[in-house]
Lab assay of single mutants.
Amino acid sequence: QIFVKTLTGKTITLEVEPSDTIENVKAKIQDKEGIPPDQQRLIFAGKQLEDGRTLSDYNIQKESTLHLVL
């Protein structure tokens, strides 16, 4: 699982696999929060994550925290 922290300070927990794409993660966030993926920007280690890449591409491991910017 990974954590996604929103600007409001809320933390969302997501069940993911390293092979999941960023697009996939955004879809999971939409399921939980109702935020359309095209409004979501995910930041990890100061980098904006691209939809077509996977979590493992960015070396995002379990218990990692991503930041969600709208």
Rank of each mutant, 00 (worst) to 15 (best):
F3Q: 05
A27F: 13
H67E: 14
K32F: 08
F44S: 04
L68E: 01
D38N: 11
E33W: 13
L68Q: 02
K28N: 04
T6W: 14
Q1D: 05
R53G: 07
I2H: 01
T21M: 08
E15T: 11
G9L: 03
V4F: 03
Q39E: 10
K62F: 15
F44A: 03
T54L: 09
I43M: 13
P36M: 06
P37F: 12
E23F: 14
E63L: 11
D38V: 09
N59H: 10
Y58T: 02
Q39M: 13
I43K: 06
D51V: 06
E23C: 14
T65P: 03
Q39S: 08
P18Y: 12
T11Q: 07
G52C: 12
T21I: 04
D57G: 03
E33V: 13
K5H: 11
L7T: 12
L7Y: 14
I35F: 11
G9D: 05
K62P: 15
D51K: 04
P18I: 10
G46C: 10
L42V: 04
F3H: 11
S56K: 13
K47L: 13
L70Y: 10
K26D: 00
G46S: 05
L49A: 02
G46H: 06
E33L: 15
F3D: 03
Q61W: 07
E15W: 13
R53W: 10
T65W: 08
I60W: 03
E15S: 11
L68K: 00
D38E: 13
K26Y: 03
N59P: 03
T6Y: 13
E63G: 15
I43N: 06
L68S: 01
A45Y: 08
Q61P: 13
L68F: 03
G52A: 11
I2N: 01
L49P: 01
I35W: 12
T6F: 15
G9R: 04
E63D: 15
G52D: 11
L68R: 00
A45D: 14
E23N: 09
R53H: 11
I60T: 02
T65E: 08
D38Q: 11
V25Y: 01
E63P: 03
R41P: 01
A45G: 12
L55M: 06
D20T: 10
Q39K: 12
E17P: 03
S19R: 07
T21G: 03
G46L: 03
V16S: 04
Q61H: 11
K5T: 14
K32I: 13
K32Y: 08
E23R: 14
I2Y: 05
G9N: 06
T11K: 07
A27R: 15
Q1C: 15
L70D: 11
T8K: 11
L49I: 04
I35D: 02
D20P: 01
T21D: 03
N24E: 12
K26N: 01
K5M: 11
E63S: 09
L14S: 01
G9Y: 03
Q40M: 14
Q40F: 15
T21F: 08
E23T: 09
F44L: 05
Q61K: 12
P36R: 08
F3M: 06
I22D: 00
S19E: 12
I2P: 00
K62V: 13
Q61L: 12
G34C: 07
Q48N: 12
T21P: 05
G46P: 01
G46Y: 04
K5L: 11
T11E: 06
K28W: 04
T6L: 15
Q1F: 15
E63Q: 10
I60E: 01
Q1A: 08
T8A: 12
N59V: 04
I29Q: 00
K10F: 10
E50K: 08
E33D: 05
K5F: 06
D57M: 04
F44N: 03
E50S: 07
P37H: 11
K62N: 15
Q30M: 12
L55S: 01
I29L: 07
Q30I: 03
E15V: 10
K10A: 08
Y58R: 01
P37T: 14
K5W: 05
G34R: 06
V16T: 05
Q40P: 02
N24H: 14
A27M: 13
T54S: 08
L42S: 00
L66G: 02
R41I: 14
E23S: 12
P37R: 13
K32N: 05
I60M: 04
V25C: 06
V69N: 06
T11N: 06
L70M: 11
L49F: 02
H67F: 11
E50P: 03
H67D: 10
E17I: 09
D38S: 13
Q39F: 09
E63W: 09
V25D: 00
T6N: 06
T11R: 07
A45T: 05
Q48I: 13
P18L: 14
P18N: 07
L7N: 14
Q61R: 08
T8Y: 14
N24M: 15
Q61E: 11
R53M: 12
E23W: 13
L66E: 01
D38Y: 11
G34D: 05
D51F: 04
S56V: 08
T11Y: 09
G34L: 05
